[in-house]
Design a protein around this nucleic acid. Structure first.
Lengths: 211, 211
DNA sequence: TGTACATCAGTGAACGCGCGTTCACTGATGTAC
DNA sequence: TGTACATCAGTGAACGCGCGTTCACTGATGTAC
C-alpha cells in the first residue's frame, strides 16, 4: 500500500486520520510513511500539483497542431476538468490555505508546472508571430523587473504586455473555476461548461491578439 | 456585547470556541445569541459579505465624478484592500467552503452586493455610451438565457458581450486576489499593489472598450 | 422609597467526538546458514 | 530442505487537546407593587 496509494486515494479529507481511513489503514500506520501530518499534507499537495500539471502538459501536447490561443484554451479546459474531478485536491492547492500549515520549498517546483506550460506556449506564440505584443502599459520598476525575471526563466522574448495578459487570463481561469466550484454562480449561471468555454475562448483570443 | 461584537471581532478562527475566545466569552455564552455553530457561521458570512459590499458601494460612490472604467477600478481596488485587511473574512466568503457547512438562502442577498454595484455601474456605462458592446461571441442558448435573466434583474440594456467581459473582469479580480493572498505569486511578483493596479487598469479599460 | 420577583447575560463543569501522535505489539516476508 | 533470525508493514490501545453542545447555576438589572 503505502505512499503511492495514499497519494492516489487520499486527500478527500485533510486530516491524517481521514486519509488513513480512506486507504483502509489505522491512523498510526501512516507514520510508517510520513513523519507527521504536515509531511503527509505536503505530499498530498505535491501530488495534486503534479496531477494537474500533468493534465496541463497532456492537454498542451494533444493540441500541438493548433494555434496558441486554441492550445491555451485546451489547457484551461483541462485544468477545469481536473478541478471538477478532484474537488478536494483543487481546494487543497488553489483554495484557502490550511490553517497552521506552511507549504515548504519542495512544493514550488510542482506548483509551477501549469504556469510553465502556459508560459512556454506563450513564448512559442510570440516566436511564431501568433501572439502580438500589444500596447505596453506604464508599469512600475518593480513589476517591470519581475516580468524581466520571468522572461529570463520561463518565457523568453515575451513582451511585458503579453505577460500581463497571461497573468490576467490565468487569474481569470482560477477565478472562474472558484466562482463555479465555490457556489458563487449558483442560480446565476446554469450551464457551467458552456459558460466556461465561452469565457475562456474570448480570454485566450484576447491573450494572443491583445484585443 | 453579543451579536454585534461577535460579528465585528469574530471570524479570525472558524470555530465557535475561537469566536467566543476572541470576544472574551465562555463558549457556552455564544448559545445565548446563536442556536448552533452553523448559525454563527452564517451570521459571520453575512457580515463579511455586507462589509465588503459596503466597501464596494462606498468606493463606487466616492468615484462618482469619474468614468465607468475608473469607477470599476476603484471598486476592484476597494475589494482587494478589504480582502487584505480582513483575510479571514475574505477566505470565509471567497475561499474554499467550510467542510460540512452549506450556506443558507439568507446569504444570497448580502453576497450579491458587490456584483450588484458592478453591474449597475456597467449598465450606467452602457446607457451613457461609455461602454461599447463589442462583438458578441456565439453562445449557447443556456448562457444567453442566463445573461438575459441578469439583464432583467441587475443590468438593464447591457449587451451579452459586455456582461461576458464583466464576468471576466470579476473572475480576474478574485483570481488575482487569491493568487496574491494564497501565496501563488510568492517570489514571482514582489510589488503586489502595483501589480494589481496594473492588471486591473487594463482589465477595466477592456471591460469598457471591449479591446 | 423599599421590597419581591422576573428577566437576562454570562459562567463553569461536563459530555462525547475526532484529531495528531506515541508506543509496545504482531505476524508475514525475506535472508543466512 | 529446514531452521533461526532480522526486517518490515501494519495493529490497537492510549495520551492530551480542541471541538460543539448541554445544563444547572449565578449575579446583575429591570419592573411591580
Amino acid at each position: 500500500m503505502g505512499r503511492r496509494h495514499l497519494a492516489e486515494h487520499g486527500a478527500s479529507g485533510l486530516s491524517l486520520r481521514a486519509v488513513a481511513r480512506e486507504v483502509g489503514m489505522v491512523s498510526s500506520a501512516v507514520y510508517r510513511y510520513f513523519p507527521s501530518r504536515d509531511d503527509l499534507l505536503t505530499a498530498l499537495i505535491i501530488d495534486a500539483y503534479d496531477a494537474v500539471g500533468e493534465c496541463a502538459e497532456n492537454a498542451d501536447e494533444s493540441a500541438r497542431d493548433r494555434g496558441v490561443a486554441a492550445r491555451w484554451l485546451n489547457v484551461c479546459e483541462a485544468v477545469r476538468a481536473w478541478a471538477l474531478a478532484n474537488a478536494h485536491e483543487y481546494a487543497l492547492i488553489y483554495g484557502s490555505p490550511v490553517p497552521g500549515y506552511a507549504a515548504p520549498e519542495a512544493t514550488i517546483g510542482p506548483a509551477s508546472r501549469v504556469p510553465v506550460v502556459l508560459l512556454r506556449l506563450l513564448a512559442d506564440g510570440v516566436a511564431g508571430g501568433e501572439v502580438v505584443a500589444g500596447e505596453t502599459a506604464a508599469m512600475s520598476r518593480a513589476v517591470r523587473s519581475d516580468f524581466a525575471q520571468l522572461r529570463r526563466t520561463a518565457a523568453p522574448s515575451v513582451p511585458d504586455a503579453a505577460l500581463s495578459r497571461a497573468f490576467a487570463v490565468w487569474a481569470q481561469v482560477l477565478g472562474t473555476i472558484n466562482l463555479e466550484m465555490f457556489g458563487h454562480l449558483h442560480n446565476v449561471i446554469h450551464d457551467y461548461d458552456a459558460f466556461f468555454t465561452l469565457q475562456m475562448r474570448r480570454a485566450c483570443e484576447f491573450l494572443a491578439q491583445g484585443a
